[in-house]
């Protein structure tokens, strides 16, 4: 075991794993994080706390993770390189590990242009692949990037993102290979709607045995309304929603029910794809639906290891 987190145990056991995302508040409410924690604790193996997602300032991921930790939930701390240089990254990691956070998801971060502080200076001192390397070095060599020794252990279970749908599409497997080589223990992908295209990517991933060197969780986002479907299709970088799904949402009399139906159909197919070790549910401002989705996908109860 690298960090011995619940996420690592469930993935290592070979069971189909379920993680979900919880966005921290645009404020100081501990209760709002706890509410999401209560909702998700029985239906997920670990809960990601986003890091100023879409470049909008929110409570820090580390703080959100600690609140979840106090509730007995295994948190995944998301960390973007947009907001921190190598000094801040390493010190935040020491703090996270000191307080029992073991899973960290390494990301570039949405460009600051999309957020509520578009005039901010993007840091990008290191990139997301170098961030993975940094964590691995701190864990395996117990060294800082400077080469100096770290006092104490740095048990980390290192995560990274992958977008099978972005361009250049031929490079997407190579990029995953780079992340695996850098030290990614698990991968959470961009939301899957076009399962056939996702399958093509996983086939290439399996071909290179990358699925044996890392654990791949396929991302899913339940769609709440036709408006949300259109917005994600047209305006969210990296997400591809086939028109057919937008049409289904538009024609549905009960949009929310249709959204759940669509996501369950996707999950059913994902469960059967070789190389997929679980799902990661990103129910952006619709976290309430997650328990129902997991139950209806016949993924309850979650294993206790």
């Amino acid at each position: 075991m690298k960090a011995g987190t619940n996420l690592e145990k469930v993935l290592e056991s070979g069971k189909f794993t379920v993680t979900a995302e919880a966005g921290p508040p645009k404020g100081t409410s501990v209760a709002s994080v706890q509410k999401k924690g209560e909702l998700l604790r029985h239906c997920c193996d670990a809960v990601n706390v986003t890091d100023n997602q879409t470049a909008i300032v929110r409570m820090s991921s580390l703080t959100g993770c600690l609140i979840l930790k106090q509730q007995g939930i295994d948190p995944v701390m998301q960390m973007v390189v947009r907001d921190r240089n190598r000094l801040a990254i390493q010190s935040d990691l020491l703090g996270a590990v000191a307080l029992g956070v073991g899973n960290v998801l390494c990301l570039s971060g949405d460009h600051q242009k999309f957020g509520n502080h578009p005039g901010a200076k993007g840091v990008f001192d290191i990139d997301s692949i170098q961030l993975i390397q940094t964590l691995k070095m701190m864990r395996d060599e117990k060294k800082f990037l400077s080469g100096e020794d770290i006092n104490g252990e740095v048990p980390l279970f290192i995560g990274a993102a992958a977008n099978p749908f972005a361009d250049p599409s031929e490079f997407r497997v190579s990029r995953l290979a780079k992340k695996v080589k850098a030290g990614a223990d698990f991968i959470q992908t961009q939301a899957v709607y076009d399962v056939d295209r996702f399958r093509q990517w996983t086939e290439a991933v399996v071909e290179r045995d990358l699925d044996k060197q890392t654990h791949i969780l396929a991302g899913v986002i339940p769609i709440k309304s036709a408006g949300m479907a259109r917005y994600m299709r047209d305006s969210v970088p990296g997400v591809i929603i086939p028109d057919e799904i937008v049409t289904r949402m538009e024609q549905a009399t009960e949009a929310k029910e249709e959204g759940v139906k669509i996501i369950l159909e996707v999950i059913e197919q994902l469960k059967e794809i070789p190389g997929v070790h679980g799902i990661h549910i990103m129910a952006v401002s619709w976290e309430d639906i997650i328990p129902e989705v997991v139950r209806k996908a016949v993924l309850m109860p979650r294993p206790v290891l």
Partner: peptide
């Protein structure tokens, strides 16, 4: 980024 395109 120094190691290839992001997901965007």
């Amino acid at each position: 980024l120094l190691n290839g395109p992001c997901g965007g």
